[in-house]
């Protein structure tokens, strides 16, 4: 915080506000102040304390609201199945770490996580690839109709994803003879394509916008230099522009990955929910909900397990983002 230098000053007694407070004290020796009034007076005479206090209050508030749900998931996960009705707010009613193993025994949950991970990875690669090409075109080339096309891309993201569901579902359930050699049933239902195709399309506009902004910042001279040195335009994009936009690419990639990995609507409707049918992680969690009993402890444990790969990925990517920023790559 920037409060330090002024705090030092007030300690020296040179700070005018302190002098003012002392003077006020001298002027009104008789005034009998209550606890709150005294505290308020102190804050007014030394506002840095007030700023610091509010900073901590706000920080703690946000930390609690974001981290407490995770903590409570852990509490629920550790509570033994029989005590689920007595689960506390801060402490589990009992201690049953075996829930984290049971998750994989009851269902092949690892397969669900793998399905999700694969779908999210393919979608991220596809989005970054297509987004890079589109971002290059929109960010670095000038042509007639550029703004109109950009608007069109934007419009796709205006529709609620649910609006696409019925036509897509019917399309993916149609048997296409051409696909028969590739996919056993000849339809996309129950394949990873049924999830990653619509989700890539839905998250593409955001990535195009992020990449477009980054790519347009790269000086023209660098692209020209690469082309004169021996690359094509495409080569210049992937050898010079993309590496220099690493923070932007990482941002777009992480956003896409998390969105696809956590997506609910398409993920829950485009497969029949069996792990062999490429049902994603989310379906796995829902499967702990039986007809007569809901295994909240296993659902909680599964949720925590499912978060881990993403958390690791973000931490790794974060480092990349920070290093990309600190090397000052684009500085001329």
């Amino acid at each position: 915080m920037s409060a330090d230098p002024t705090a030092d000053e007030s300690a020296d007694g040179d700070d005018p506000t302190v002098e003012m407070a002392e003077q006020a004290k001298a002027d009104e020796p008789e005034l009998d102040r209550g606890l709150v009034e005294a505290w308020a007076a102190k804050m007014i005479s030394n506002p840095d304390r007030a700023y610091r206090a509010t900073f901590y209050v706000a920080t703690i508030f946000f930390l609690v609201t974001t981290l407490f749900p995770f903590y409570w998931l852990l509490v629920v996960a550790l509570t033994p199945r029989n005590n689920l009705s007595e689960v506390g707010v801060f402490l589990p009613a009992g201690f049953n770490p075996a829930a984290f193993i049971e998750v994989f025994q009851t269902l092949p949950f690892h397969r669900y996580v793998f399905n999700s991970f694969l779908i999210a990875t393919i979608a991220t690669v596809a989005v970054l690839l297509v987004g890079s090409l589109a971002g290059y075109v929109f960010g670095r080339l000038r042509f007639r109709g550029r703004n109109a096309m950009l608007l069109l891309v934007l419009v796709t993201s205006f529709f609620p994803p649910a609006a696409f569901f019925i036509p897509l579902n019917r399309l993916f359930n149609t048997n296409v003879d051409v696909l028969r050699p590739l996919i056993s049933a000849g339809s996309l239902y129950n394949t990873p394509y049924a999830i990653f195709i619509p989700l890539s399309a839905i998250f593409l506009p955001l990535s195009i916008f992020i990449l477009m902004t980054f790519y347009s910042q790269i000086p023209d001279g660098l692209e020209d230099a690469a082309r004169v040195e021996g690359t094509t335009r495409l080569g210049a994009l992937f050898r010079v522009i993309v590496p220099l936009s690493a923070p932007g690419v990482a941002t777009a990639g992480v956003l896409t990955f998390i969105s696809v990995y956590n997506e609910y609507f398409f993920s829950s409707l485009m497969t029949d929910g069996r792990p062999g049918s490429w049902a994603p992680m989310l379906e796995g969690i829902l499967r702990f909900q039986g007809e007569f009993e809901v295994l909240y402890n296993l659902m909680a444990a599964a949720s925590i397990v499912a978060v881990l790969p993403v958390a690791i990925l973000v931490v790794v990517a974060q480092e990349k983002i920070v290093s990309g920023l600190t090397t000052g790559a684009v500085k001329e």
């Binding site: 000086p219 001279g221 230099a225 082309r227 094509t232 000052g328």
Partner: peptide
């Protein structure tokens, strides 16, 4: 022909070294 096939090289005003 594209620039890479012209047998030329170029020095730019803003120097244009690849910063990475």
């Amino acid at each position: 022909l594209p620039p890479k096939d012209r047998g030329i090289s170029m020095v730019f005003q803003n120097i244009a070294l690849f910063p990475h």
